[in-house]
Design a protein around this nucleic acid. Sequence first.
DNA 1: AACCGTCCCAACCGCCTCGGA
DNA 2: CTCCGAGGCGGTTGGGACGGT
Length: 330
Amino acid sequence: MGRPPCCDKIGVKKGPWTPEEDILLVTYIQEHGPGNWRAVPTSTGLLRCSKSCRLRWTNYLRPGIKRGNFTDHEEKMIIHLQALLGNRWAAIASYLPQRTDNDIKNYWNTHLKKKLKKLQSGSEGEGYNRDAILSSQATSRGQWEKRLQTDIHMAKQALCEALSIEKPEATTSTICETKPKPTTTQPYTYASSTENIARLLQGFMRKNSPKPTTNKHNSLSSAASSEVTSTTPSTTAPHSNNGIDLSEAFESLFGFESFESSNSDSSQPMSPDASLFQGESKPDISAQLPLSLLEKWLFDEGGCAGAVSAAAQEHADLADMTLDENPDLF
DNA sequence: AACCGTCCCAACCGCCTCGGA
DNA sequence: CTCCGAGGCGGTTGGGACGGT
């Protein structure tokens, strides 16, 4: 049995979020900043539990999130970090600031696990350099472990830095998720968040209009189109054929410019505002030394490829090794 | 066109940690 | 020091999308 679910209360809505709910949530966070999630449902009138609001924000609405289209670079990064850190998705996500832990987890479970399995079973990898992987097997374990230890140490430092909440340099972009700035601060810039929602709305509109090309990643769940009967004030727009109005209203509400280009193109650079938000919950350590070093190693053909198979195979051992033999590491 | 199986991902669940009272 | 609640995290799942027959 255990503890009753936090969202077990009557009247708490579950399931896919509607655009109206998203707007409510974003509007609230725009005013108050992320954090104090418990207050969100009561303050916004959302019939959602605080947890659901937090998840929606962190996994979907948060500025600077890139969705879908994992690049080869990201893919390798995930593979190596998974080998290095195990299923600590949040830690892994901290190295990929534009990705959420949920996204990475999903991608791992649906794509990378299979891919690695395939590779290990000897079949040709899609897009992977098998030679490199095979050659990696020649890499001596001792060498690999030695390297790994060094890199774990660097990773640890990076994580420590990242997790030690506020670095001086972060002051310009800081929106501390756990402890929002005092109310003296100016309203948050919100462009990139609105971009996120705009994408949702676009998908939503597409979905409700005579079926153009679908973009799975940006579309809303169908529930959004069917179950919205609520009479949410101001931002509410009936779905039937005035999605554009909704979009325009949204646009004017937040004053963002164009979201046409902000689809899930992985190579697309984030907007300045998005980058501003990077430090919000995931420190952008990619700009810092430890990551670049780690990356250098990760993507160094020899060591990198070595890491893939060796790490995959030795993962459990390594985990033990690093924890047992290096208790000071973590 | 209809049905069926598989894939994928958003969201939920439950446990854990941490901080405040 | 203990208790309790909020937030964080990883595992899991429900259901829509998609492809094959």
